[in-house]
Design a protein around this nucleic acid. Structure first.
Length: 454
RNA sequence: ACCGCCGUAGCUCAGUGGACGAGAGCACCUGGCUACGAACCAGGGGGCCGCGUGUUCGAAUCACGCCGGCGGUACCA
């Protein structure tokens, strides 16, 4: 099974708009692997096309930014925004951008040189963010990778009569029940559909997957409907499930889209840092006895965990209005709550002796809080399987939270270390060990760390 | 205009293969640390589950229509 997610644009810093695909995709990849699929995670980076034409035009006019850090990337980002707007207003700039994107496709050395620099810069700036989020890719086959694989698809579509060439030279596809779309520009350049069609053909040949999962925002639903219909019409991917996991975009608190030029853009790094800072403040207040390095590590696990969980616990299709307090919530229905319950279980296990654990008799667990936990444990496989069939990690996030709540009640009503009898104590220890393992596994599958102590 | 998604408590959201008389978090009110860690727990107020019709023994959940919000609709991605 191949899972495509994150797929950031080049020459841009990752912002809250990218976080959803990244987080949802990684969780799905984790869970599909747990379900037994051999998962290939792929970031289909946007390193090709007309947007690069615009970038190259901008650099040609304004010069190449110095440095190889986030600051340089920010400058590129600004250049792109400005020239993208210019291209819409001035036909000469637009033409220049088209020319450059074509030169890039044709292997022009100058274009290639700048292209390599831009891609390298972007990937190196993004890398530490991925590390913090626990994200890793098996392959990064950007759109450029498919440059030489597109002509055959276009030819195939024409040959099969699925597509036709217009008088202007463009290749147009008309399928039943689908709006028509283009497979090739009139100047010979390729398009989004072309690249994605070539990508499917490649993946089909290369991996023979049972499914290809696209974790891409909902605005591209039509694109994928058309793409999948095209591939079916061509006779491709007959035995492959093609799935678009669609999610809603993140908008500003005012209900309007986030945009750099509107000044309300929130970058991923800033978001993670703020989450870390908030978690650190609470760690300092509630666990002053822990050494500095540990509190720092806990703050990272808790802060980043909160961000990840916030994205996973709700229906991905909803539009999310940016709300710092909600995204970074550290109480209630949040990752820290689940992490806390896990840590309390671990705390009990730390205080018990090893020989106590695993020898308990489960039939002694008859208190309502105990049976509730046993039921919760039994439901975990269902939750994981639901993710596999519904393609949403929310089912598992929900399980983690409900289970953590049941754990909290048990914690209050059923003392473990000071249980009434040694037999009950042993049984409860065994239960606590199971809960700790279940919660930790659930969190790990979601891509969230489960520290032994907060 | 057409297509898609969403519309559940003041706010943010769970719940839609059969399973109590509809749930959680935040906010508000009340109570609980001489600790298996209070990043917690217990309790309270607060809801024509957008509206209507239909299917069914039974509908927040399924079907159809309507209203509202958002998104998309060939040479950007």
């Amino acid at each position: 099974m191949l899972v495509e997610y994150s797929s950031p644009n080049m020459a841009r810093r990752m912002h809250v708009g990218h976080i959803r695909s990244t987080i949802i995709g990684q969780a799905l990849a984790n869970i599909m692997a747990a379900l037994g699929y051999r998962v290939i995670s792929d970031s289909h980076i946007g390193d090709w096309g007309k947007n690069f034409g615009i970038l190259l035009t901008a650099i040609r006019h304004e010069g190449r930014p110095t440095g190889n850090d986030e600051a340089a990337l920010a400058i590129l980002e600004g250049l792109y925004a400005r020239y993208n707007r210019l291209a819409e207003e001035e036909a000469t700039i637009d033409q220049e951008a088209r020319d450059w994107s074509l030169r890039l496709e044709q292997g022009d050395p100058e274009a290639l040189d700048l292209w390599r620099w831009i891609v390298g810069l972007t990937l190196s700036v993004n890398a530490p963010l991925y590390t913090r989020l626990g994200v890793r890719f098996d392959t990064i086959h950007g759109e450029s990778f498919f440059n030489d694989k597109m002509a055959p698809i276009v030819a195939e579509a024409l040959k099969q009569g699925v597509a036709t060439r217009t008088d202007g030279g463009a290749v147009v596809v008309t399928l039943p029940e689908q709006p028509t779309f283009l497979l090739q520009r009139s100047d010979g350049g390729t398009l989004y559909h072309t690249r994605d069609a070539a990508t499917i053909a490649f993946r089909e040949e290369e991996y023979r997957p049972t499914a290809i999962i696209y974790v891409v925002d909902g605005r591209q639903e039509l694109h994928f409907r058309q793409l999948f219909a095209l591939m079916r019409a061509l006779g491709h991917a007959r035995e492959i499930a093609l799935v678009h996991v669609s999610f809603g975009v993140v908008i500003g608190p005012d209900g309007r889209p986030l945009a750099a030029r509107r000044g309300n853009m929130v970058y991923l790094q800033a978001l993670l840092n703020e989450a870390h800072t908030r978690a650190r403040a609470i760690a300092d207040a509630s666990s002053p006895h822990l050494p500095e390095v540990e509190r720092e590590a806990i703050a990272e696990a808790v802060g980043v965990g909160a961000v990840i969980y916030n994205d996973l616990h709700q229906d991905p299709r909803r539009t999310i209005a940016l709300d710092w307090d909600q995204m970074l919530a550290l109480q209630g229905n949040s990752a820290p709550y689940i992490q806390y319950m896990h840590a309390r279980c671990r705390s009990i296990l730390r205080r018990a002796t090893l020989t106590d654990i695993g020898s308990g008799d489960p039939s002694l667990l008859t208190h309502p809080a105990e049976t509730a936990l046993l039921k919760a444990l039994a439901l975990m496989p269902n939750a994981v399987r639901a993710v596999g069939t519904r393609y949403t990690a929310a089912a598992l996030a929900e399980w983690c939270y409900e289970t953590a709540r049941a754990t909290a009640t048990f914690y209050r009503d059923c003392p473990t270390l000071t249980a009434p009898t040694p037999e009950v104590r042993a049984a409860r220890l065994r239960l606590v060990a199971a809960m700790a393992q279940g919660l930790a596994s659930g969190l790990h599958l979601l891509g969230i760390a489960a520290p032994d102590q907060l």
